[in-house]
């Protein structure tokens, strides 16, 4: 059982980095109910790994790794998983459903992100969040040159697919 000061420290950390969690969850879940479950699952995994945080990595790197790993696994798991998690109070999270907003920039942005596969989607989120190639490679577990190659490929894809905009 973890102590209250540790819990407070953890809650402060979540407060400071909540945008990372929501960006990742928004990118992997279209359905708002699933997204709430995913946010909750990420927070629980962060809490369970909190005592083992390795300070050789930046806090944001650690959070990104956990959030992305959980989101990818969640994305790939059948919906039955939903029934096995504890439910979160609806008032805790309120996120606008960006994917329905097809006319706006964020709708376009999510349209592009959603068509990428799970791993390239993670790469894209990190790139758009202005992470360095080194940090992206640390989070994804691939080399920096591989990161650069993949980003170039995504650039080409983007040009081709959205040439009319």
């Amino acid at each position: 059982m973890k102590l209250q000061p540790e819990k407070d420290q953890f809650l402060a950390l979540i407060e400071d980095h909540k945008k990372i969690i929501f960006k990742v969850c928004n990118a992997y879940c279209k359905d708002s109910e699933d997204r709430k479950d995913l946010v909750q699952e990420v927070i629980i995994q962060l809490w369970q790994s909190f005592g083992r945080y390795n300070d050789q990595y930046k806090l944001s790197t650690w959070i990104y790794r956990i959030a992305l790993n959980v989101a990818i696994s969640f994305y790939r798991t059948e919906r039955t998983r939903k029934n096995r998690t504890q439910s979160i109070h609806d008032a805790i999270i309120e996120i606008g459903d960006e994917t329905q907003d097809t006319e706006s920039n964020s709708g376009l942005l999510h349209r592009f992100i959603n068509q990428l596969d799970e791993l390239n989607r993670a790469l894209m989120i990190l790139y758009l969040d202005e992470k360095s190639y080194r940090e992206i490679s640390e989070i994804l577990g691939i080399s920096e040159t591989n990161v650069a190659t993949k980003i170039n490929r995504i650039k080409q894809k983007l040009k081709l697919q959205f040439s009319k905009f």
Binding site: Q48, R52, Y53, R65, S73, A122, I139, L140, G141
Partner: peptide, 15 residues
């Protein structure tokens, strides 16, 4: 066992 804090590609592979 260290949870989900490993790098994405190797950890997803293990899963």
């Amino acid at each position: 066992k260290r949870g989900y804090s490993g790098a994405i590609a190797p950890l997803q592979k293990k899963l």
